[in-house]
Design a protein around this nucleic acid. Structure first.
Lengths: 217, 217
DNA sequence: AAAGAATGCGACTGATTATTCGCGTTTGTC
DNA sequence: GACAAACGCGAATAATCAGTCGCATTCTTT
């Protein structure tokens, strides 16, 4: 019934119950796999609960044993992806800040390589990420994660150059994230060779974007 | 009933009838205005036909006098936007190709300024563009336009450097479009001053992106 | 092997919403 | 002013789906 996630349902995104018997522990995986495959097949449109259940060899009712609603399934798939960004950027902030132009360039490259890896490791998830962005109910949830990520990019920029104004840092943070995301989504739809070329392109763009603001150019 | 646009309905995106009496010529505008306002208000979710009709001071039936389906309304709003890109890029291709580094930089800037203007002039339409991207039925139609635009960016790159390989041109074309689009959407959500700063950022990124491929660096 | 818990089922409910259609009203024309 | 065409209406239709609930089946434990 509920077609839009209101306060109540927003809270109810956690798994409804933990599987207690062995047979069912695999069921959750089957559901997630089915949702992933269907999302990949259908592109933008998120799969229906019935389709997910059938693909997983289950009934709708069983799906609802483990997930409070449809959104929770997609979100569960995306969760690892969504949480690895903050981890990776935070790790880069812990490193010693660069002191000269060469070190700075190396720091950009490290952040760059680390974030790229997230995309490569989760390549199969990308259709889900795109579906979430296109879904009116899930979009706000992703936006929350995005804000975190932007804040971390901004924090990284200020880690690299402590004198950088907040406003500039947050602007550059948004652009780094969005440019990286847009280009890598394109890259993952191409072959691996093209992906690598696009990575080089992104690195040049990132450098061009941030260099003027770090007094290192 | 039809919830998804199949072959038949894809064809039926043209206005159902031309208004014949004066009173109704304004009605189409009222419908389009209502759809625009509601899309802006609601963000991602596309407005319902009932909502559009009520906002326009009409009944649903009247809306269907002028539009064959809901999608056609949003597409009508986006049409000017979608068609101005090809126009603008094609115009830039007609100019004489640059012969040295300085001229090349100026050509990039011109393409850049012209495309930026499209965004500024259609700023109010952006929510509609975003809604279309997030709508499973309309996405494929936008993708067709996007392919055209990419091809034109690629053609522009080869106009500027005729020796550029097709494959490279099309890769850079995609990235120019996507990077420009992503950044400008961000920019238009900020104040005008920030938009201008982001424009500078985009220009630097475009230059960094294409420079290595034009033997001018 | 029997009880009770966990799991599985799927027809059904309820909500939403695009689109139609027959009828009433307005407008333009002669 | 009368006729037809255009316009406007909105209740009704029908398709789609998320989520529920009571009953059936399977497992675990003792």
């Amino acid at each position: 019934m509920k077609r839009s996630l209101d306060r109540k349902t927003r809270i109810a995104l956690e798994p409804r119950k933990q599987p207690r018997q062995q047979r069912s522990s695999k069921v959750v995986d089957r559901i997630l796999d089915a949702a992933l495959i269907l999302t990949r097949e259908q592109g933008t449109r998120t799969p229906t609960t019935l389709a997910i259940a059938q693909r997983a060899g289950l009934s709708v009712g069983s799906v609802y044993q483990y997930f409070p609603n449809k959104e929770a399934i997609l979100l569960d798939l995306a969760r690892r992806w969504l949480s690895s960004f903050p981890e990776v950027i935070a790790r880069r902030i812990k490193a010693a800040p660069p002191t000269n132009r060469e070190e700075f360039r190396r720091e950009v490259r490290k952040l760059f390589v680390d974030t790229s890896r997230i995309y490569l490791e989760n390549a199969t998830l990308m259709p889900v990420i795109e579906a979430i962005s296109g879904n009116a109910d899930l979009r706000p949830i992703q936006d929350e994660y995005d804000e975190q990520i932007i804040a971390l990019y901004a924090a990284w920029l200020q880690h690299v150059n402590p004198a950088l104004e907040d406003k500039i840092a947050s602007r550059l943070g948004v652009l780094m994230m969005d440019v990286g995301h847009a280009c890598r989504l394109v890259g993952l739809k191409r072959d691996r060779k093209t992906y690598d070329l696009i990575e080089d392109d992104v690195e040049r763009m990132w450098l061009a974007l941030v260099s003027p603001y770090l007094n290192l150019d």
